[in-house]
Amino acid sequence: MSLAQLIDLTKTYHMGADIIVEALRGVDLDIEEGEYIAVMGPSGSGKSTLLNLIGCLDRPTGGRYILGGQDVSRLSDAELSEVRGRRIGFVFQSFNLIPQLTALDNIEVPLFYQGVHRRQRRRRSQELADRVGLGARARHKPMELSGGEQQRVAIARALSNDPLILLADEPTGNLDSVTGREILGLFDDLSARGRTLIVVTHDEAIAARTHRTVQMADGKIVNHTSN
């Protein structure tokens, strides 16, 4: 059985009185364990909506979403939070670190809401900081870190809860090309160790590194390509 299954997933937004936006119009997607998938498509094609649904930040209007054997398409807000906290890791284009927390504290945020003990959290965050190559910079606050370092913190944070799926939305979008390549190297590394990754990107070069590319347009998947 696949790790995640999207079955005829739809999402419509009501903007004002009678403007209805159909962001997703029946998406079917199977995600296998250990897969590295790139999602591509022009803006407005539904990439972000798809990512939000996979990340359990939102509920689909129609269809089903099975994640790790659990139907999560009709869960309550609190249950969805729980699923996010335990099974999903997010990496954002703009890093989204909490400014007043140190790198280590940022890495621990998902564990905090899991009720993991402080000492255990610290051990895990230190281990992850080392793994993403932060080293001594881990005690600094985001403002004192470079973009590349910040994104490493974000990746470490996304890994802290050992998620089923790591979702990355344009992870190199705010980085220079050299740093971007370093981050992508980190992704390759994670993939090689069997981590399931989904990356939303505009960049063909990134897509080329993944196992397969999902091409979206007008709220639908229009093409699957194995790389």
Binding site: D77, A78, S81, G85, N96, Y113, R157
Partner: peptide
């Protein structure tokens, strides 16, 4: 607001 969004994405429930 952003911090709240981040915390929610990382598994914080409303009551948290």
């Amino acid at each position: 607001t952003r911090e709240i969004g981040i915390r929610r994405a990382m598994g914080a429930k409303r009551r948290d």
